[in-house]
């Protein structure tokens, strides 16, 4: 059964993609640093400290997470991932977005043609409900439908 959650739009856009869920903080640099340099668009997660995502493809997924953590290269790494087409199709935050992820989303929205919709404040219920592989639809208003 489909369930819809309402969040706040940080970077506008719409998409439909399978979910990849990180229940803990998502370390952007640790996750993307190898994937950016090596391998294809699937961008396998390189963060050995994240059992939810380690070695799973991040590219083209609806990345569901509480927040990002770690290095302040985070926003720049997201920006580079979007430019390289190795980014998640969208990023969906249960909590209010953190400063690094917000930077990456806003920089990409303002300086790149490729878009990566970002929605935050979806709530813990969203993160508890969503599972890897569930199909997620995001609209321009910040409505996130999980099925």
């Amino acid at each position: 059964m489909a369930k819809t959650f309402k969040g706040r739009v940080v970077a506008p856009g719409s998409c439909k993609a399978p979910a990849l869920v990180s229940h803990g903080g998502f370390n952007t640099l640790a996750s993307f640093q190898s994937a950016l340099m090596f391998g294809g668009k699937e961008a396998k997660c390189g963060d050995q400290n994240n059992p939810d995502c380690y070695e799973k493809a991040m590219g083209g997924t609806a990345l569901c997470l509480p927040e990002t953590i770690g290095s302040t290269t985070g926003g720049m790494v997201l920006y580079a991932a979007v430019a390289a087409g190795k980014n998640p199709a969208c990023m969906l935050f249960s909590k209010p977005i953190d400063s690094l992820a917000a930077s990456g989303a806003i920089l990409a929205a303002n300086f790149l043609e490729q878009k990566m919709p970002v929605v935050d404040k979806l709530g813990q219920e969203f993160l508890d409900y969503v599972r890897d592989g569930m199909m997620i639809t995001v609209d321009e208003e910040g409505n996130v439908t999980v099925e």
Binding site: T72, T73, G74, G75, M76, V77, Y79, D98, S99, L100, S103, G104, L107
Partner: peptide
């Protein structure tokens, strides 16, 4: 100082 990202700083 906030935890600014690279580029933003």
């Amino acid at each position: 100082c906030n935890r600014n990202s690279g580029i933003i700083e």
